[in-house]
Simulated scan of single mutants.
Amino acid sequence: MTEALERYFVPEPSKFPIIGAIALLLFGSGAAMWLNKVGAGPWIFFGGIAILIYMLFGWFGQVVRESESGLYGKNVDKSFRWSMGWFIFSEVMFFAAFFGALFYVRVLALPSLATGDNEALLWEGFTGAWPSSGPRAGDAFTPMGAWGIPAINTLILLTSGATLTWAHYGLLKGARGQLKLGLLATVVLGAIFLSLQIYEYTHAYSELNLRLDSGIYGSTFYLLTGFHGLHVTVGAIMLTVMLFRAIAGHFSAEHHFAFEAAAWYWHFVDVVWLFLFVVVYWL
């Protein structure tokens, strides 16, 4: 058995990759049709989501069963770690592009457009100051401040990172109750973060006149905070799955990479928020 685990486990041919490809095809084409007001668009879009959810449950369920049956050894564990590492790196590049766009606009584009005769190309009174609202009086908005919900959400995410680390320590020392309680606290804190962000968006639209189309400030604000909120949602779902698996008795001090992968992702989300809080809200 030990010799078998040292070899690389090769799973049987699976139907799930082609199912996932079909789901993404329906998802993308349905979204495009919906945006272009084609009647069947919403049905195709949600059909793609339903098939994607089926694929995720089936494929990840198969991986969990294989892991719990002892088929994965050190070589598979190493592959999982490299895969998750490269996935998080791709997410780092994803956000780097967004932060780069914000840096380019604030530090390079706006000051350059405010020099020489460039003002004539835009609108009267353009100064190149950040945030830029637009030429029409109705476009004026109030920028989002840092010391309120954003600061509270920062504290919430930092606390969630601590509770997740506490849960990990519980797993390493065999304290299952600490593992479950730490995971539950982390998921709850993630839900509170998302609830406050929804309230923040409602406040921005209704009282600050800050919308997605509020010039480059509105575009970058909602792009960065919205995609980060999406990542928090994904991370919370991952940790919820880890909680259910912990309740079912999965994981041991020696074998628990699924938990570690979710923890890596959550800590990545925490770090991105710290940069986002400073660059988008504070400065």
Rank of each mutant, 00 (worst) to 15 (best):
H203E: 15
N153F: 03
N209Y: 07
T186D: 05
D213C: 02
H256G: 03
W264H: 12
A101I: 09
G100L: 05
Q62M: 14
A21M: 13
P42L: 09
M55L: 00
L5A: 08
A151L: 15
S67G: 11
G235C: 02
L71P: 00
L210M: 12
I53K: 06
R65L: 09
A261G: 14
Y169K: 13
N153A: 10
S133I: 07
L121D: 02
R81L: 06
P111V: 05
T159S: 15
G58P: 09
F275W: 06
W264D: 08
Y217D: 11
V271I: 15
W34T: 15
A97V: 14
V107S: 11
F221T: 07
G128H: 05
A185W: 01
P131S: 10
I198R: 01
I18M: 13
P13A: 11
G226A: 08
F259Q: 05
A246W: 04
G229W: 04
I198C: 01
L110T: 05
L184K: 14
A120G: 15
F80R: 05
S219Q: 06
H203I: 12
D139L: 12
A109K: 06
A109T: 03
H228R: 00
Q62A: 14
Y72M: 07
V269C: 08
I216H: 04
L122S: 00
S252D: 11
V187S: 09
L239W: 04
L171I: 11
G125T: 03
M84W: 11
L110P: 02
M144L: 15
H255Y: 04
G28R: 00
L283Q: 13
V10K: 15
V187Y: 03
S83Y: 10
V63K: 01
G47N: 04
P131L: 06
R245S: 02
E91G: 10
L157G: 06
G58K: 07
L276N: 08
V269K: 01
F16E: 13
L183Q: 09
F227T: 14
T186A: 10
L35Y: 13
L283I: 13
L274E: 13
L274F: 14
G177F: 09
N36D: 12
N36C: 04
I18E: 10
V92M: 08
G116T: 08
G61M: 06
M33W: 15
P11F: 05
T240V: 05
V269L: 07
F275P: 03
E91Y: 05
A114F: 08
W147Q: 10
Y72G: 02
T186I: 04
V278W: 15
G229S: 13
L26V: 04
L110E: 11
A96W: 07
